[in-house]
Design a protein around this nucleic acid. Structure first.
Lengths: 153, 153
DNA sequence: CATGAAAATGCGAAGGG
DNA sequence: CCCTTCGCATTTTCATG
């Protein structure tokens, strides 16, 4: 099922570089890795075609946008089969930025970003716990995010 | 302490666009938002200077890189004051891609990416639980990640 | 995989509302 | 003060060997 695309050293170095900064010019990488800019171009295109590179995005400082509160919430559903309908409703909430279907203590695990504790309280009580399928929740407030990086290709 | 930079509608639309795809040309955004390309350029530079835009990165499909297992691990420390030294050791582990200092049931909460369940087992037992400061851990395996997006600027 | 030229994009100064 | 027009520099892209 999972045929992994073969990557050589050059591919991996290009990926690592672009994971740090997607705007590094091909010519710059070409110099660093002792190949031509066109070669870098070809490799990037190949990795895009293979679905390894899915796109690019900017990194925004969420605090400067006013989002001071980050937390994780473990959700227990009344019935495990309600997963899809619950997820659909969670997807409507802008504050839910990540969701995971998990084994273990919870059915669904979500990451929430809010502008304040008051907003968190509101989202939690009036939006999240208001969802029919939700039986109970457990909240984990993050005060700091000291590590945030990517896997090593 | 937190003086939020003022953003107008144009700034927010530029941010939203670049959050989806950091390579959308300025000229393209200029057309969409009925301003000149240079204006888009100026706004982006301002947001970079204000620290709102911290950088750019590519999105890689981690599964295609062989990282099939994603899980969250709640860590309890023997003593809360061991936070910094524990974190330093966690930072050494490539498999730890995110770490959060949290209130609630755990002292530290981390996200782990591994290539297989076997690797997870190894990392968990021989690397993570081998850290002196760690008292106990609780693992939450993610089988699916149906929501993964950014906050709305 | 490299070369080199054409096209697209990014960039910054100078001027206008 | 912010926006625009304009020209130059850089970068991407692609045909060819």
């Amino acid at each position: 099922m999972n045929e992994l695309p073969k990557l050589d050293d050059l591919d991996r170095r290009i990926l690592s570089t672009l994971l740090d900064d997607a705007r590094v010019p091909y010519a710059e990488m070409a110099k660093r890795f002792h190949v031509s800019p066109a070669t870098v171009h070809v490799r990037v295109e190949k990795m895009k075609a293979a679905g390894i590179i899915e796109g690019t995005e900017i990194l925004v400082n969420t605090k400067k946008l006013g989002y001071d509160v980050c937390c994780f919430i473990g959700i227990n559903l009344k019935a495990a089969r309600d997963y899809h309908s619950a997820l659909e409703k969670l997807n409507q909430l802008d504050e839910v930025v990540e969701a995971y279907y998990t084994t273990g203590a919870y059915n669904i695990f979500v990451k929430l970003m809010c502008r304040s504790i008051e907003e968190l309280q509101f989202v939690l009580i009036d939006k999240l716990q208001a969802i029919d399928e939700v039986q109970s929740t457990e909240t984990l407030i993050s005060l700091q995010n000291p590590i945030n990086r990517n896997v090593i290709p």
